[in-house]
Simulated scan of single mutants.
Amino acid sequence: MQRRQFHSLLSASVAATFLSPVLTHAQPRPLLRAGDQKGGLRALLEAAGELKNIAYDIKWSEFPAAAPLAEALNADAVDFGPIGDAPLLFTLAAGSRVKAFAANRSDAYGTAILVAPNSPLKGAASLKGKIVATNRGSIGHFVTLKALASVGLKQDDIDLRFLPPPDAKLALTQGSVDAWATWEPYTALAETGGHAKVLVNGRGLWSGLSFLAATESALRDKRGILQDFKLRVARAQVWSYQHPAEFGAALARIIGIPAEAARLQFERRATRWQDIDSQVVADQQRTADFYLDAGLVKQRLDVRGTFDTRFSVAA
């Protein structure tokens, strides 16, 4: 009886030894819930081959603009996502605890105010009394206000309609609004499709800053994963400008836009990733102060609390 019990225990021990690697292998991989806008991040990483050999799974959620993405961050529905400087400020003003952990700068031209191809409007001053569509709190909203300020006008001098990009584009083509303030790739799509022309571009108005922003819980619990993702994005961006034709074709295919529009918006943006340094913080503070002067926020915002600099090389 004792011998049988011994053999039974020995067999169980041997079985556990062989099963333990299987059980270890079956442990679930970490999950990163990634927000995206018009498939831009996913397209970049996929084209550059940076979605291979990742030690975690990625669940992608796509949003048409930064505002709904910011809402998803606030609701903890995604871990992180790309967001412009203006939308990030609105999350701060609303009491959100979302923080940017990576920054990039782009040529601001494509963040622009568009009008119909046959529009008689000439320059920002001609917008007085006109109807302008944009997303509330978007970089399009910001550029509109900056363009008005550059010619001595205020928001009250125009009729501002808050519409998401697809609705704003339709409104412009149907003539129910006079102008549409938007960003890439919508600008390139409208231009190459013959639906609009640039009335005012963002150069000299917008800093060109955009960020990857994450929830506090993701920054706390998934820091290593976010750091890896940031490095992959930076490598992919360098690759994209080394292989412009290949990336342009992949971008068009992945996000489902014509190749001409994909190539135009990619080439003129000239995006480069950088650390969150003192210049980034200063530029963001100037944007926040402009919003205060414009009456869009009720009290001065200290933007330093919006950044997590532990991901920067300098840090």
Rank of each mutant, 00 (worst) to 15 (best):
M1C: 13
Q2F: 10
R4T: 15
F6I: 14
H7G: 12
S13K: 12
A16G: 12
F18E: 05
P30F: 14
G35M: 01
G35W: 03
L41Y: 00
R42Q: 14
R42T: 12
K52H: 14
I54A: 02
D57E: 15
E62N: 15
E62A: 14
A66R: 00
A66H: 05
N74P: 09
N74M: 13
V78N: 02
F80A: 06
I83K: 00
D85Q: 07
P87I: 01
L88P: 01
A93P: 01
S96N: 06
A100T: 03
F101N: 02
A102E: 04
Y109I: 08
A112S: 10
L114W: 00
L114I: 05
P117K: 13
S126A: 15
V132I: 07
N135P: 06
G137T: 02
S138C: 01
G140Q: 01
T144L: 09
A149I: 04
K154S: 11
D156A: 15
D157A: 13
L160Q: 11
L163W: 10
L163P: 05
P164K: 01
P166T: 10
L170F: 13
Q174D: 14
Q174T: 15
W183C: 02
P185I: 11
T192W: 06
H195V: 08
H195C: 12
V198R: 05
N201W: 06
L205E: 00
L209D: 03
A214P: 07
E216T: 13
L219K: 01
G224Q: 14
Q227P: 07
D228T: 15
D228I: 11
D228M: 12
L231D: 07
Q237A: 11
W239P: 07
Q242H: 12
A245D: 15
A250C: 12
I254N: 06
I255Q: 05
G256Q: 09
A259P: 08
A261C: 11
Q265M: 14
F266D: 04
E267T: 11
R268S: 13
Q274H: 10
D275M: 13
S278P: 10
V280F: 04
Q284H: 11
T287S: 08
L292I: 02
A294D: 08
L296K: 03
V297C: 09
V303I: 06
V303K: 01
T306K: 09
F307N: 01
A314C: 13
